[in-house]
């Protein structure tokens, strides 16, 4: 509260005395400023400002790590992927479509313990007949026709949703399984949406 009225002291402590230089210094200063200026709200705790090693690297390199670094990151993320123990990867595409449509979850206005949506249409075109789609990610129309339904294709789609960073180190796509935003059944339903020949994605 008080710091609003005594900003000089804060500034001196937080950075005025050591004006950050260079990309590393500026990044550290930005994160320190955020840690000072944010507060936990609802389910969104302050721990969310702690970047893991991957994000640190992406932030430090402007999302363009050197090829060997990127490869090492991708391998590290890949080994942490947990494929379903029962060996099946395709669920119900109708449930998958509902999940892909839902953008809810993980914000401070969402309730704890409620299942998260997939947010997929926020970034992807998926079913041809859904015209409300985002364009941050590529179109996934016809994805199953392109990739087929082999075990390999299923594992790949499952892994992509589980952890996009196993394929592209600093991908804009969230790591849905890795961070526990989507569970095994949900990811299976999404794999079915993408690959099932009966899904509107492939019709």
């Amino acid at each position: 509260m008080k710091n609003y009225l005594i900003p000089l002291a804060v500034l001196l402590v937080a950075g005025c005395a050591s004006q950050p230089t260079g990309p590393e210094g500026k990044l550290r200063f930005a994160i320190d400023s955020m840690k000072r200026d944010f507060q936990a709200k609802g389910i969104a705790g302050m721990d969310r400002l702690e970047a893991d090693k991957l994000l640190q690297t992406c932030n430090q390199t402007g999302n363009k790590p050197k090829p060997d670094v990127a490869e090492a990151i991708e391998a590290e993320q890949a080994v942490a992927i947990r494929l379903p123990a029962d060996g099946t990867h395709m669920g119900d595409w109708k449930e998958g479509e509902k999940l892909a449509q839902s953008g809810r979850g993980m914000t401070w206005s969402d309730k704890a313990g409620q299942p998260n949506g997939g947010n997929c249409y926020n970034c992807h075109r998926i079913s041809k007949n859904e015209i409300s789609f985002g364009t941050i990610g590529p179109s996934l129309v016809g994805y199953g026709k392109l990739k087929g339904t082999s075990l390999e294709a299923q594992k790949n789609a499952y892994s992509q949703i589980y952890n996009s960073k196993a394929f592209s180190a600093c991908s804009a796509m969230p790591r849905f399984g890795h961070v526990g935003a989507l569970n095994e059944k949900q990811i299976k339903d999404l794999v079915a949406l993408l690959l099932d020949p009966e899904s509107p994605v492939n019709k």
Binding site: I31, M34, L49, L55, G62, R175
Partner: peptide, 12 residues
Amino acid sequence: SIFHVRAGPYDF
């Protein structure tokens, strides 16, 4: 700088 800081569960 803050504009480019990725953080949180979705890495945004």
